[in-house]
Deep mutational scan, measured.
Amino acid sequence: GVRVRALYDYDGQEQDELSFKAGDELTKLGEEDEQGWCRGRLDSGQLGLYPANYVEAI
């Protein structure tokens, strides 16, 4: 996976979405899909989806 850092807070709206705060680091686990979602893993171990444009590569 690729380490990325959140640029903005994001509150997951669905069960399969991650929630994070600006500045949090997570691991991107795949390329974004056509809707702009990426699969990732928080350092807590939680897996889920997040909007790709909310993070930057570290």
Rank of each mutant, 00 (worst) to 15 (best):
L42S: 11
R5N: 02
Y50I: 11
Y50G: 00
D24C: 14
R3L: 04
G48W: 00
L26M: 12
Q35A: 13
G48E: 00
G36T: 03
E25K: 10
Y54W: 08
D16C: 08
L29Y: 13
L47N: 14
V55L: 03
V55A: 12
K21Q: 08
L42M: 09
A6Q: 03
E25I: 10
A52R: 06
L7V: 08
G48L: 02
I58F: 13
L18K: 03
G23M: 09
D24R: 03
S44L: 03
L47S: 14
E34S: 13
K28I: 05
E14L: 13
E25V: 14
D11L: 11
S19C: 08
E34R: 12
A57T: 10
L29I: 13
E14N: 08
A52W: 06
R39D: 04
R39H: 15
N53I: 04
A52T: 13
L18Q: 02
Q15F: 11
D24V: 07
E14M: 07
A22V: 13
L29D: 04
G1L: 02
G1A: 08
G23S: 05
C38R: 01
E25L: 11
R39S: 12
G40C: 01
L47G: 12
L26C: 00
E31M: 09
V55I: 04
Y8P: 01
V4R: 02
V4D: 02
L47A: 13
L29Q: 06
E56S: 09
S44T: 13
D9A: 11
L49Q: 15
V55G: 06
G36D: 03
K21A: 09
L29K: 04
A52Q: 07
F20R: 01
S44V: 03
R39I: 06
K28H: 10
G48F: 00
V55N: 01
R41L: 09
D9H: 04
E31G: 11
L26S: 02
A57L: 13
G12V: 02
G30F: 08
R5Y: 11
A22F: 09
Q35I: 15
A22P: 02
P51I: 06
Y50D: 00
A22S: 14
K28C: 10
L47V: 13
W37I: 14
T27K: 03
Y10D: 02
V4P: 00
Y8G: 03
L42E: 01
W37R: 15
G30T: 13
E31F: 04
